[in-house]
């Protein structure tokens, strides 16, 4: 592949007590690629996201972002380099209105530097971003306290926060979980758009049907280990994968 390498994960290992949550995972991610990460519950997907974004320190192994080591850096330093994440459990600023939620990442030094030393009208940028992820502009929704937003909106807010940071690499931790089919359908184009803008994306997902449509490549984790990697088509056909994960999910077979 000729595209530059964005992320390199080498022998990443994390133990919690006696449990090895992530067990020597390796993978490489190229510019503008969408990587899906799948695996049963407890297979270490979220820990992997935490390890890459600095929320958890690895016991062994390293993470390189554009050739520079980011493992061991505190989360904010990782984010400053342009690696943003969403949280599986949406974590908005409950007391703030929806659009003000985005003013926080818009106040980041990274945005300041990228915007050429000026933040601009953060409120306006925030409202634009919200519209992009599917908030109705000029409606009451964007002014509503995040605590009172329905689940679907919170997930969109999570995505908008990554976009506000102008991240190059986005780690979306189960962005689609708990969303209705229609809501997922409305989110997919947003992710396509991000890809067309040159973003690199890691998607941890349980919604395989949608994921397999978006992802260029899929990584399968089981008990913290990488058991398969390949295009969605290849991954689906692997017997080990079917056994470990897809066995019960017959719907995937015809996706």
């Amino acid at each position: 592949m000729s595209r530059p390498v964005v992320l390199e994960v080498r022998g990443l290992l994390k133990r919690y007590g006696g449990v090895t949550a992530v067990d020597g995972v390796d993978f490489t991610l190229h510019e503008n690629e969408v990587l899906g990460v799948i695996g049963p519950n407890g297979s270490g997907k979220t820990t992997l996201v935490n390890l890459i974004t600095g929320f958890v320190k690895p016991d062994r192994g390293k993470v390189l972002y554009r050739g520079k080591r980011i493992s061991g850096l505190p989360p904010y330093r990782v984010a400053l380099k342009g690696v943003a994440r969403t949280f599986q459990m949406a974590k908005p600023f409950y007391q703030l209105p929806a659009y003000k939620n985005l003013v926080v990442p818009l106040s980041s030094p990274r945005v300041h530097a990228l915007a050429g030393g000026s933040y601009g009208d953060r409120d306006a940028v925030a409202k634009d971003l919200l519209e992009e992820v599917g908030f109705e502009r000029d409606s009451w929704v964007i002014n509503k306290a995040a605590a009172s937003l329905p689940h679907g909106y919170l997930k969109r807010l999570e995505l908008a926060r990554c976009m506000a940071l102008r991240a190059d690499l986005m780690l979306l931790d189960e962005l689609f979980s708990g969303l209705s089919l229609a809501e997922v359908a409305s989110m997919v184009p947003v992710i396509d758009k991000l890809r067309s803008r040159g973003k690199t994306i890691i998607m941890v997902e349980h919604r395989l049907r949608e994921l397999f449509r978006i992802a260029d490549r899929v990584l399968v984790l089981n008990f913290g280990q990488k058991i398969a990697e390949g295009t969605p088509g290849q991954v689906m056909d692997l017997p080990a994968v079917r056994e470990a994960y897809l066995g019960s999910e017959a719907e995937v077979g015809d996706a």
Binding site: T53, F55, P74, P75, Y76, R77, A79, L80, A84, R85, F87, K91, P92, F93, Y94, Q95, L96, K100, V103, V104, P105, L106, S107, S108, P109, R110, Y119, R122, R161, A164, L165
Partner: peptide, 24 residues
């Protein structure tokens, strides 16, 4: 101001503030 907003954000949900590249 937006500075205070970030402070309130830390009170509300510090992890999100960290993942916004802000040194809490």
């Amino acid at each position: 101001s937006d500075y205070g907003l970030v402070l309130k954000g830390i009170n509300d949900n510090d992890r999100s503030v960290m993942s916004a590249g802000i040194n809490i």
